[in-house]
């Protein structure tokens, strides 16, 4: 079980101040436990990459971990704003953050380019959008065959990718299923890969075309049941929509947010936090 570490050790060994880190998972399998550990270890000046920052980056931004965000949609799905993210962008609280804002399609092209070892990704995108006037990273390129002008985005190659999966075997081969988002791309684009898993099994029951990330691509694995809560793990537990709704009130004020984080994330023991609903 040489790839296996306690979560705290995996984070401490592989994520440093100033790193570019992507914690991915599109609504599903969001690595909350790993994000909370980054917060507890007070890692600073991170460039945080994620298509949908979601509650986990709201918490990391509010707790001062972020220097820069690369993203495409920063809201609480179906609920409204991410208030800590807004406070950082609108009022530079708790610190100023730089933003590199793209679209979903552009983020996926950036990840795919990173995984493919290419310098940039390409798409038919952003035509007529003001985003290109505000983000110098969004450029264009002429097709050498047809002359069509296409959008270009720089590859994303994070220092560390962090993902959560349903299962790994004892060697460390990882299997995820359901909505698989960009996890394969980001794992192959990153220099180091940290995986948290719901369950360790003797043998993966993965069909031939399943989304499997082989052990030799993975840097460290931690066995963290319920490590994606309050998001969900298909086949294990449902999304805690009630918590997503209640986050709006918790995160609206700086004071209430700090109080909640101190009570539930900074001091709570792991079992108590992930062993039941966070409400």
């Amino acid at each position: 079980m040489s790839k296996y570490y306690p979560l705290a050790d995996a984070i401490q060994t592989h994520i440093r101040d100033g790193d570019c880190v992507a914690l991915e998972g599109f609504t599903h399998l969001i690595p909350f436990a790993a994000g909370h550990e980054i917060i507890r270890q007070k890692i600073r000046d991170l460039t945080l990459v994620r298509m949908t920052p979601d509650l986990i980056y709201d918490q990391m931004i509010g707790m001062g971990c972020a220097r820069k965000i690369i993203f495409s949609w920063g809201g609480n799905p179906g609920v409204g704003s991410l208030h800590r993210f807004r406070d950082a962008v609108e009022n530079q609280y708790p610190n100023e953050i730089e933003i590199d804002e793209r679209s979903h399609a552009a983020m996926t092209a950036s990840y795919a380019a990173g995984a493919s070892g290419l310098p940039f990704g390409m798409l038919r995108g952003f035509v007529g959008s003001d985003l290109v006037d505000h983000n110098p990273n969004l450029k264009s390129i002429d097709c050498p065959y047809t002359g069509e002008r296409l959008a270009a985005v720089p590859a994303i190659r994070p220092d560390v990718a962090v993902i959560h999966a349903q299962q790994a075997d004892k060697i460390g081969n990882v299997h995820l299923w359901g909505i698989i988002g960009v996890q394969k791309e980001i794992a192959l684009a990153a220099k180091r890969v940290i995986v948290t898993v719901e369950e360790v099994v003797d043998k993966l029951e993965a069909p031939a075309n399943a989304c499997v990330i082989p052990a030799w691509v993975v840097t460290a694995i931690a066995h963290v049941p319920r490590g994606a809560k309050p998001s969900y793990a298909h086949g294990y537990y449902e999304r805690d929509n009630g918590f997503y709704r209640s986050w709006d009130a918790i995160s609206r004020s700086r004071e209430k947010f700090s109080e909640w984080m101190n009570e539930h994330i900074m001091s709570e023991n792991f079992e108590a936090l992930y062993g039941k609903s966070m409400l």
């Binding site: 949908t52 993203f71 495409s72 949609w73 920063g74 809201g75 704003s81 991410l82 804002e101 793209r102 679209s103 979903h104 399609a105 798409l123 038919r124 995108g125 952003f126 959008s129 985003l131």
Partner: peptide, 8 residues
């Protein structure tokens, strides 16, 4: 929140 998938 931002663009998400909308521009494309």
């Amino acid at each position: 929140p931002g663009a998400g998938g909308a521009p494309e």
